[in-house]
Design a protein around this nucleic acid. Sequence first.
DNA 1: TTACATGCAAACTGTTTGCAAATAT
DNA 2: ATATTTGCAAACAGTTTGCATGTAA
Lengths: 138, 138
Amino acid sequence: MNLQHTALVERLRLAGLRPTRQRLCLAAILFGAGDRHVSAESLHQEALAARIDVSLATVYNTLNQFKAAGLLREVAFEGDRTFFDTNTSNHFHYYIEETNSLVDIGTENLEVLGLPQLPPGTEIDRVDIIIRLRKSSR
Amino acid sequence: MNLQHTALVERLRLAGLRPTRQRLCLAAILFGAGDRHVSAESLHQEALAARIDVSLATVYNTLNQFKAAGLLREVAFEGDRTFFDTNTSNHFHYYIEETNSLVDIGTENLEVLGLPQLPPGTEIDRVDIIIRLRKSSR
DNA sequence: TTACATGCAAACTGTTTGCAAATAT
DNA sequence: ATATTTGCAAACAGTTTGCATGTAA
């Protein structure tokens, strides 16, 4: 019943989600410590490791509800599983092939130059940039 | 037995792939007319529409073999299916939400400025940029 | 004639869903 | 008391694979 707990309850309420035990625990993992990138599987593992009893189906449902509520963002990515990012602002990613993980790019000064004109009748929804990194050869 | 056919046979041979009927037909669809973006399903449909008898499994296998041979490139993309691009050079994409389709961005002048230093011991493998477009609101 | 490719169906993986039991309000 | 959420298992979609048959060299 500490401050952080209260804040999370409030956050879920604002999103129109009942603050259930499972959602609170997952929210604590997700929003408790800086920006995170998780898959359903990794979050589930993390919850189990923290002795939080939650089913994988609920993790999936929760991630999708959080995403719909704008608490999370899905990352465009060609890998076999879906990644979610707790940083919902416009920013970009390194993908580290070696560890199959994503890292935010500090985006302060990043800009894309030379975009051609958009097709008529369209506007930019968002821009995804993924820079795939590999171990350097020497 | 025309020139284009011979060129395709040669192209497959160079890739170490036997020029079978199925692979030749798929190659003709893929490389016969400008840059293409296909999914396994869409290519299979296209083949069937052209009265080419080929199984979906073979389409999948062929796409993966072509990709391994460098004839195709997989596109980083969060959608539910995998897209392949016949343009294997470094270039970027618009994703048109309305039609769930990809379009190349003429990349002549495109550049990304302000990238922070790479994590030590890594180098850039490649850069994927996807600009999601939606119908403009007015 | 032999190694490789194909097609089918079955297997597999990540994700979603129907429904009965549990929980939040 | 009632509407929502959970967990399980079953369903599902896209993709891969094992194996018998067919085909290229």
